[in-house]
Design a protein around this nucleic acid. Structure first.
Length: 673
RNA sequence: GCGCUCGUAGCUCAGCAGGAUAGAGCAUCGGUUUCCUAAACCGAAGGUCAGAGGUUCGAGUCCUCUCGGGCGCGCCA
């Protein structure tokens, strides 16, 4: 079915054109206040301005010229020139029956012109657990993908994981430490070092002392690990890597700790002026070389990115780590009910690595990439730095390494050329806005993007703690997504336990999960994505207000009615099957009905601006209207002439809530709670 | 310095190409249960939409300036 606003829009715009001769949109909106009717057309006033006439008079003429009697009661002109519209009972009933007939899609049409849409979201990093910083991208992106999917577009999800770049070296180094800790020192020294560094962060002298010890041990272990030639690692590290695939599950938690250690060390070392021995290729063989300690991970990264036979072992280890990380992410996606599937939707930075040189050569040959201060840069128009100079989009560092700008260019080109994307939506936090502006500008300069293609950066703000500062654990660490979800589920479990203690344990656990995870997701969706928002378990798990539990509760109440029907000799299927007329006498019935027929519009609004909160706002209005209806209008005990209509309202409300929550937001509904 | 973004009730937030008297929830005060889940519903109170100009028949929304918060601005992602 066509959207009601669209139907009215077309008819009224025609009338405006007929009367005034201008092509002005009718601007049909749901009425600001129910007392003005159901919808209002605001476009006449603008049209009147164009033809320089009195808006009210023009509105009267438009009303006289238009024929919408099959949809609305006779319209009224109000205020400076609003046209107020009230649906006829017959039309409203017909819409509800239309939704009833097409129960799967609730009567909502697919897009007339399906597009291929790439949605880039989530993007976790390798060798790290997902943390709260990944939550918003993951679920907002997922909602956008689901919306486009439902509308009949060809959606290609892309999980652009961080599996290349500096982490590469860090992970290998973490593995190395893990290996030495186990094989040589027989103790997880990295854990002790981690603690020591943490507790001496303020004490520079002590910190330096610790780092010197770490460096000395590191050097010693490195020099000790060779069989034939310098630094061949064939004595200790090599054999360890060879059997890594058989022990990866066991050592995984330790790898993460060692990785944390390497990360922290990387930060701390800056400015300490400590050096470390590593190797570099001489004429023909490896030679020792001393480099600044803080450069070590970058050095390893650079070596490994060169690849080749020398590094095959490490590359394989890398692959293992990557798959292991993705397993963890998949678990989270499963818990979050997110539609990303590995490996189908995974194309990370490493995927584009082979074509990065070509990206640079191509841009060079087009004269777009030029050398500046040793780095290859594109200078898109209109971007300046603090000194008013053209701002570079750096695609190759002076040491020859590539950056995320290069990878993003390669990925964009791939999505346009190979995936045939007509729309590419990037879901990342707002801090990257400048990067994407420049990325899009550079791609356009390169001629990769024609006018039919839309590139979109969907931004979002930060998650804050109760203190208004970035959301962290009590000790200041990042909050792991897994822990966050577990706590939400645990809290929800407590509520279920007090409210409904008699349910079977298994069912209580399922409810707790649906409510807990749903609450976390919903509270994020319900905020305007651009604002930073304050994370609060108490608020998101409240039964009052715009929350997942409130919505789930409304759904559960309807399901409860359905369960009770049999006991009261009501055959719902039979009553709905033959339904033809819908006498909606009670105000609460009508209010609910009028909201039900607006679901399509809510979806369209949410999609147009990639704003899930338009959808949650609608669902909340709907659930509220249902709760009022539920209080005011008995269903099962209603008079026989009223009951089928009420059963239909219940059924459509349940379907709409379930569709909105479960299909579009990925939030589970429950039969009981 | 330039750019992006935000500033709406005591608190947390909505407000969908400018539209009628700016809305929720929490907190506060009051009411509703022999009846399908009261995890609910109804009502009261609460606002100079940061401030000042401007455009417009009409501005929380658009423009200019000011104040305040967050973020970004050459080799991290």
């Amino acid at each position: 079915m066509k959207k009601i606003t669209e139907l009215l829009e077309t008819r009224i715009a025609e009338a405006i054109n007929e009367v005034s001769g201008v092509d002005a949109p009718a601007l049909v909106r749901p009425a600001a206040d129910a007392k003005f009717g159901d919808y209002q057309a605001n476009g006449v006033m603008a049209a009147a301005k164009q033809v320089k006439t009195h808006p009210r008079q023009l509105a009267e003429k438009v009303v006289a010229a238009m024929d919408i009697s099959d949809i609305c009661q006779p319209p009224e002109v109000a205020g400076p020139g609003f046209i107020n519209l009230r649906l006829t009972d017959g039309f409203l009933a017909e819409r509800l029956l239309g939704m009833h007939r097409d129960a799967e899609r609730l009567g909502i049409d697919r897009a007339e012109m399906p597009q291929t849409v790439v949605v880039d979201y989530s993007g976790p990093n390798i060798a790290k657990q997902m943390h709260v910083g990944h939550l918003r991208s993951t679920i907002i992106g997922d909602c956008i993908a689901r919306l486009y999917d439902f509308s009949g577009h060809n959606v290609i999800r892309q999980n652009h994981i961080g599996d290349w770049g500096t982490q590469f070296g860090k992970v290998i180094l973490a593995l190395w430490h893990l290996c030495m800790a186990r094989k040589v020192h027989k103790s997880p020294y990295y854990e002790d070092d981690l603690k020591a560094i943490d507790s001496n962060k303020e004490n520079t002298n002590k910190l330096y002392e610790i780092c010197v010890q770490i460096r000395n041990r590191h050097n010693e272990d490195y020099l000790n690990d060779q069989v034939e030639e310098f630094g061949d690692a064939n004595k200790i590290f090599g054999p360890f890597l060879d059997k890594l695939d058989t022990i990866i599950d066991d050592v995984w938690p330790d790898i993460l700790k060692a990785y944390q250690f390497v990360n922290l060390l990387d930060e701390i070392l800056i400015g300490m002026d400590l050096s470390i021995i590593t190797r570099q290729k001489g004429d023909d063989k490896w030679e020792p070389v001393e480099i600044p300690y803080e450069n070590l991970t970058r050095k390893i990264t650079a070596m490994l990115q060169i690849g080749g036979q020398d590094n095959q072992q490490e590359v394989d280890a890398w692959g293992l780590i990557r798959e292991k990380t993705m397993q963890h992410c998949e678990d989270i996606y499963h818990d979050l009910n997110v539609t990303l599937e590995h490996p189908r939707d995974t194309r990370g930075e490493s995927y584009y690595n082979p074509v990065l040189p070509d990206v640079v050569t191509t841009l060079k040959s087009k004269g777009l990439a030029v050398e500046s201060e040793g780095a290859m840069c594109v200078f898109p128009e209109g971007f300046t730095n603090k000194d008013g100079q053209p701002l570079p989009f750096i695609i190759q560092k002076s040491d020859g390494a590539f950056l995320y700008a290069t990878t993003d260019l390669a990925a964009l080109r791939f999505r346009l050329d190979e995936l045939k994307a007509e729309r590419v939506i990037y879901v990342t936090d707002a801090r990257q806005a400048l990067h994407f502006q420049m990325l899009f500008a550079a791609a356009k300069m390169a001629g990769w993007v024609d006018e039919r293609i839309t590139l979109e950066h969907v931004t979002f703000g930060a998650m804050l703690g109760a203190d208004g500062k970035p959301f962290k654990t009590r000790t200041g660490g990042t909050v792991k997504l897994k822990d966050l979800l577990d706590e939400a589920i645990e809290r929800a479990k407590g509520v279920v336990e007090t409210k409904n203690p008699d349910l079977p344990a298994e069912q209580k656990a399922a409810i707790a999960k649906a409510v807990g995870v749903g609450a976390v997701k919903y509270s994020d969706y319900a905020n305007n994505r651009n604002s930073d928002y304050v994370f609060s378990f108490d608020k998101m798990l409240a039964m009052d207000g715009n929350t997942a539990p409130y919505m789930q509760y409304a759904y559960a109440r309807i399901k409860s009615i359905e369960r009770k029907a049999a006991g009261k000799d009501v055959d719902i299927a039979k009553e709905l099957d033959g339904i033809a007329a819908l006498p909606l006498a009670e105000p609460a019935e009508k209010d609910l009905a009028k909201l039900l027929v607006r679901y399509d519009q809510a979806i369209a609004a949410a999609m147009a601006e990639c704003r899930p909160n338009y959808l949650t706002g609608y669902l909340y209005d709907l659930a509220q209207a249902f709760s009022r209806f539920y209080t005011a209008c008995p269903v099962l005990t209603a008079e026989p002439q009223h009951r089928p209509a009420r059963l239909l309202l219940c059924d459509l409300t349940a379907r709409t809530i379930r569709h909105g929550l479960s299909e579009l937001l990925g939030i589970e509904v429950v039969e009981q709670m």
